[in-house]
Design a protein around this nucleic acid. Structure first.
Length: 202
DNA sequence: CTCTCGATTACCT
DNA sequence: GGTAATCGAGAGC
């Protein structure tokens, strides 16, 4: 299998890491099954300069992972229903995380169907709360090191030309002037097409 | 302790 | 298009 992304990949500016994660692979090992999804949509969240970030007002028990080592999982529960998965960025002490908003199923789709019964394949992983359900990710994986071959990690991809677009982040009220959502435009698993989208790079 | 509201989703009209 | 579901983190007193 492809090599892991090292800690140094994540120990950079969150807004740089986020688009670089597009096309990479999220790998989940659970009960002898392997689930793999290609990352097609992400958002960057920083710290005291980012009013939309959980870390904006400093360290709390919930957001502690954002202040920890880079390349670890930050999993939180929201709306009384859903878990969201982030990968942490920046060196310990500097908060940052990239929210994984959508994946393209690559391997283990039967397991994903089992974890998310009665939904069409096109909707298994096209949203942050959907992909955690399809990949059996909950708070027990919070702070998991995703740079080692454990239950949850990120694998590199071959270099390829990706058409990356950006837009304001989804579901927030502040920070809408920042184009910190990044996605592979045209990919069928992107959660929604952004209004005000801009081409980011090829 | 109490209150508000959310980095969402599914289902309704 | 609209909104109920459902819980806990975080803020304020």
């Amino acid at each position: 299998m492809a090599r892991l992304l090292p800690s140094a990949f994540f120990e950079r500016d969150t807004v740089k890491v986020a688009p670089d994660l597009l096309g990479k692979y999220l790998v989940r090992l659970k009960d002898r099954e392997r689930l793999i999804g290609r990352i097609v949509e992400v958002e960057a969240y920083r710290g005291s300069d980012d009013p939309a970030s959980h870390a904006f007002r400093g360290l709390t028990p919930r957001n502690a992972a954002m202040f920890g080592d880079p390349g670890h999982a930050y999993v939180y529960f929201t709306y009384g229903h859903h878990y969201c998965l982030n990968v942490t960025t920046q060196k310990a002490g500097t908060p940052g995380a990239v929210l994984l908003r959508a994946l393209q199923p690559v391997e283990g789709i039967n397991a994903m169907r089992r974890f998310r019964p009665n939904v069409p394949d096109s909707e298994l992983t096209n949203g942050p709360g959907k992909l955690t359900k399809a990949f059996a990710i909950d708070k027990s994986l919070n702070e998991q090191d995703m740079t080692i071959r454990g239950p949850l990690f990120v694998a590199d991809s071959e270099k390829g030309d990706l058409e990356i677009w950006s837009s304001p982040r989804v579901g927030i009220r502040e920070g809408l002037d920042r184009f910190w959502r990044f996605y592979l435009r045209g990919n069928a698993y992107v959660s929604k097409r952004g209004m005000r989208e801009r081409k980011f790079r090829d």
